[in-house]
Nucleic acid binder design. Structure first.
Length: 573
DNA sequence: GCCGTTTTCGGCCCGACTGTTTTCAGTCG
């Protein structure tokens, strides 16, 4: 199996860390980090590009030297320069550098003076009080290292967007009760609607006599106040999440919102553009020389560099600045574009509500249609439906449809894809359905090629329509199974099948990168909630967020189609 | 090590905070 982009990127990041510790040219170090980011974000595998004799120097931040190095890694699995550096500087120092507050200079000092190589060494040195003796270090730094070393694993963890939202909602309510609060927004990856969140960055504008900062640091869910200043404070909540609050002058609100929304890579791209126009953008505004020329709104900031407003979900430096320049930004999909949910369960298997309740809940959300996709018999734990029970459900739906006025229930199933790629129910019953959704619920550990073959074989079945949660990942709980997504997408397109973006906030499967890959492949997707109860239908916005991050427009998503067109699209005949 | 509407050399995003100093280096976002 060929090497993953992530592994290549990790090698370059580690090399950058170690070179930085050694005191190498900082722009050379940055070049490796930039390259790592480019490689990590790229939707196609480097191995494949090389196989196709593509010129890697066409990628941003990749020049002749790095193209050669990537080739060497793909061919040999190793990076000779990294091996060479390892002989001088232990690889584990790169781990230590991930501790907040420890950068290359301090790690170097710790290594040279105290022979610290590992996290364990560091912990012992801090506990024995040797670190405070070093020049440039002191009591507080030692204390900080002690604490951060202990909570290292916790700080590293990103939480699911939905978890962040629950926390953010309470915080918003609490903070908005402060005196004189005007604007309130949460910037960062939360505003970019990333599937996971590392911390919260809250921005507010407030009148002179506001007590917002005092209220913030005394919030009852605070475990620790990490820093407290007049305009900026940081707290750590009992859940471990760290939260920043900044009080911003009104005239800088747009500039600050832009700055703190990021992503970092997007900001750098925009600021580079500003440099060319001889203007400067920072979190206070846009400046020409000393003169402030904009900053009240984000729109103003973009306008100064000749760009239209760019939606937060797009701000990942994945080509959005260039597209904006050329007036080619996508018209992103909205919740209102969705006309139905195509993956829902009922109490017939592991759902909680009846057919009628699900249908009514969908109608209430303004949908034209909803499909019922209960599990098939192989999912015994979910009391999956066998042939007989499914036929009964079909009959019930037909009868129910006659009585429902403003919604149509589509007859479907979430049929198990068995290990050999065959489907869990025979064609004679599948053909009675409007369409099918196929899914993997077992044998996650097949090899990449076996798993790919399995899924392609499943799609060979003429009654297969949509591949549900295509990688099986559960955020922070279960890794995606190994599968060649590009082949799956190509295969789906050739066969007239589609793939699902599962909007369940614990899944969000496909990732944004994978959705982008689907778009590039020309394969349309379905955004479904996998609802197991009526309230789960409200997961749809999470799917929409993810889709927007992948540049998807209503035309890329088939459950934006009216019923008649949807049926025609799903038909493989 | 990359890159070019200041184009093959000489730049590389920008400012704030922290802890250590006594004017600043290191780190972060």
């Amino acid at each position: 199996m060929s090497i993953h982009n992530n592994e290549i990127a990790n090698m370059f990041d580690e090399l950058a860390d170690l070179l930085e510790i050694e005191g190498s040219n900082r722009f050379r170090v940055r070049a490796y980090r930039n390259a790592a980011r480019t490689i990590r974000k790229h939707t196609k595998k480097m191995a494949q590009l090389i196989e196709q004799h593509r010129d890697l120097t066409e990628l941003p931040d990749i020049g002749n030297d790095l193209a050669d190095k990537i080739k060497t890694i793909v061919e040999t699995g190793q990076l000779p320069l990294l091996e060479k550096v390892h002989s001088r500087t232990p690889a584990t120092l790169s781990q230590i550098m991930k501790i907040r507050g420890l950068g290359p200079k301090r790690v170097k000092a710790l290594h040279e003076s105290l022979k610290i190589k590992t996290l364990d060494d560091l912990k012992h040195a801090a506990n024995s009080g040797r670190i405070r003796e070093l020049e440039g270090f002191g009591k507080k730094t030692e204390q900080m290292i002690k604490m951060r070393t202990e909570e290292f694993s916790e700080a590293e963890k990103r939480i699911k967007l939905i978890e962040a939202e629950e926390i953010a909602t309470s915080l918003r309510e609490y903070i908005k009760k402060s005196r004189g609060i005007k604007d309130f927004n949460i910037a960062g990856s939360y505003r970019r609607r990333k599937d996971t969140i590392g911390d919260l960055d809250i921005l507010v504008t407030a009148g002179k006599n506001t007590d917002v900062m005092q209220r913030f640091v005394t919030y009852d869910r605070v475990r620790e106040v990490l820093s407290q200043r007049e305009t900026r404070s940081t707290i750590r909540l009992r859940t471990g999440l760290s939260v920043d609050l900044r009080v911003i002058p009104e005239k800088s609100y747009g500039a600050a919102l832009h700055y703190f929304t990021g992503s970092k890579a997007h900001n750098i791209a925009v600021r580079k553009l500003a440099l060319k126009k001889k203007i400067k953008i920072n979190e206070y505004g846009v400046f020409k020389g000393e003169k402030r020329i904009a900053g009240n709104t984000e729109k103003e900031v973009y306008a100064q560099v000749g760009l239209p407003y760019i939606e937060p979900e797009l701000r990942e430096n994945r080509g959005e600045v260039d597209a904006a320049k050329r007036g080619k930004l996508p018209e992103l999909i909205n919740l209102e574009d969705i006309r139905g949910d195509l993956h829902c369960h009922t109490g017939a298997t592991d759902g909680k509500n009846t057919l009628k309740e699900m249908a009514q809940a969908a109608a209430k959300r303004g949908y034209e249609y909803i499909s019922i996709n209960d599990h098939s018999k192989h999912m015994a734990v979910a009391s999956g439906l066998g042939e007989k029970k499914l036929l009964e459900q079909i009959e019930t739906i037909d009868k129910l449809n006659e009585t429902l006025e403003d919604i149509v229930i589509l007859k479907s199933i979430e049929v198990d894809i068995l290990q050999d790629g065959s489907l869990d129910l025979p064609a004679r019953v599948l053909k009675e359905l409007d369409f099918t959704v196929g899914a993997v619920h077992s044998n996650f550990n097949l090899s990449r090629s076996q798993q790919t073959k399995r899924l392609l074989h499943a799609m060979d079945n003429p009654y297969f329509n949509i591949l549900a949660h295509p990688t099986g990942r559960l955020i922070n709980a279960r890794k995606a199974y190994e599968v060649d997504l590009e082949k799956i997408m190509q295969g789906a397109k050739e066969r007239g099948c589609f793939i699902e973006l599962n909007a369940h906030p614990a899944r969000l499967d496909l990732t944004d990168d994978a959705c982008l890959m689907a778009k590039h492949t020309g394969l349309n997707i379905v955004i479904s909630t996998d609802a197991h109860r009526t309230s789960d239908l409200d997961f749809m916005p999470y799917g929409i967020n993810q889709a927007r991050r992948a540049w998807l427009e209503a035309g890329d998503v088939i459950n934006c189609l009216p019923l008649k067109k949807l049926k025609k699209t799903l038909s493989r005949k």
